[in-house]
């Protein structure tokens, strides 16, 4: 058999089962903790560590395979397609929360205030409730709170993320042109901007909880605000870690102008979280 043009098929995959065990321990522990068992927290931590171990092992194995030249163009195409469809699934995940936000703002809040066929509901259940956004609902759930303004930290964060998108692309240009220094500086800047973004986000949350009394429990405004920005912040963290790994690999000299799927995947992911942020900035903070 001529192995030079063969599709590479790995054997003896031991990481997936480790991942399944880790995922079950993590989620099972989490569920137990939600039910009030303190033991379960430990299980959750163990599960998390197993997942981290799995990722090191799995990705490490793939990197080894890549470095030893087992992947050719055709495998790279599979990886690229896989990443694109994965990002599409992430888009749909966020679509669920954006959909909830739009439904709440366009339908459920006005209906509660008597719009459409909601006149009787308003009259008899929630008399005097008016549809203004943001709202914590006719039940004043969570008590007095203040809105998170758009033009303080969020605006700075927008600038940070947009800049990081530029530095990321600049790093990519460096990689394609075989300018290693440009690649490494660009990536380092991107990672740094990403982590500053996450730091500012933490600051913003503590401002919200401590000074604005804006919590997850502040009615639908608090719910949609923290759910959307929270999942986004989580994705930024993941993306920044991915880019950090790419930085380490770039310094080690893993990528060539022709062969750098992992870098591209991380960069696409980064642009995706960037775009989601624009949606957040417009619909959650600004309008």
């Amino acid at each position: 058999m001529s192995s030079d043009n063969a599709y590479y098929i790995p054997h003896d995959a031991k990481w997936p089962i480790v991942g399944s065990v880790g995922m079950s321990l993590f989620l099972g522990g989490f569920a137990g903790q939600l039910n009030g068992s303190s033991m379960a927290t430990n299980i959750m931590i163990v599960g998390f560590l197993v997942l981290v171990y799995m990722m090191f092992g799995w990705f490490g194995e793939v990197i080894d395979e890549s470095e030893s030249g087992k992947y050719k163009k055709i495998e790279a195409v599979s990886f690229r397609m896989g990443m694109v469809w994965f990002i599409f699934s992430e888009v749909m995940f966020f679509a669920a929360f954006f959909g909830a936000l739009f439904y709440i703002r366009i339908y459920s809040v006005p209906w509660l205030a008597g719009d459409g066929s909601g006149a009787a509901t308003n009259e008899f259940l929630w008399g005097g409730f008016e549809a203004i956004w943001p709202t914590n609902g006719p039940g004043d759930v969570g008590g007095e709170y203040q809105k998170m303004g758009a033009w303080g930290l969020p605006a700075i964060n927008t600038l940070l993320l947009l800049t990081s998108g530029v530095t990321c692309t600049w790093a990519h240009w460096g990689l394609v042109a075989n300018k290693r220094k440009q690649l490494i500086i660009g990536l380092a800047a991107t990672v740094l901007l990403g982590f500053i973004f996450v730091g500012l986000q933490v600051l913003e949350y503590s401002h919200g909880y401590n000074e604005l009394n804006l919590t997850m429990g502040s009615g639908v405004y608090g719910s949609t605000f923290y759910m959307l920005t929270g999942f986004h912040g989580f994705h930024v963290t993941v993306g920044a870690i991915m880019l950090l790994v790419m930085l380490v690999r770039s310094i080690k000299g893993h990528f060539t102008p022709e062969n750098h799927f992992a870098f591209e995947a991380a960069a696409w992911y980064w642009h995706f979280v960037d775009v989601v942020w624009l949606g957040l900035f417009i619909f959650v903070y600004w309008l």
Binding site: A100, S108, N136, G137, V141, G217, G219, G222, S223, T224
Partner: peptide, 19 residues
Amino acid sequence: DTTFFNAAGGGDPVLFQHI
């Protein structure tokens, strides 16, 4: 403590059905 599907907080159980 979120209220996506709770009218008191401005949400709507019907929203869940849509999603």
